[in-house]
């Protein structure tokens, strides 16, 4: 997935206004400004919940794939 720069900054703006990230300083490298962000406590909590949700979905998908293989559907049109 490739994120457009404008979409990146819009997303950063929204994450910051929702309190999920905070600005962690600016740095100038080769005459170019680099801005750093860090997860806030609220952001870490939301990220944890999202990671757990994805992990659950992944586990369910693997269980179903295992069940499919056990039922002898491998290679066939199930």
């Amino acid at each position: 997935m490739r994120l457009k720069v404008s979409s990146l900054y819009a997303a950063l703006d929204r994450l910051a206004s929702d309190g999920l990230i905070i600005r962690a300083g600016d740095e100038t490298v080769d005459g170019r400004l680099r801005r750093y962000f860090a997860l806030s406590d609220a952001g870490a909590q939301v990220l944890r919940a999202e990671a757990d949700r994805l992990a659950t979905q992944s586990r369910v998908a693997k269980e179903r794939l295992d069940a499919r293989r056990a039922a002898g559907f491998a290679g066939g049109a199930a």
């Binding site: 720069v5 404008s6 600016d26 170019r32 400004l33 801005r35």
Partner: peptide, 13 residues
Amino acid sequence: ENGAAMLGTFLDL
């Protein structure tokens, strides 16, 4: 507020 940082990202890319 954000123009310089955004320009930096465009330049890096």
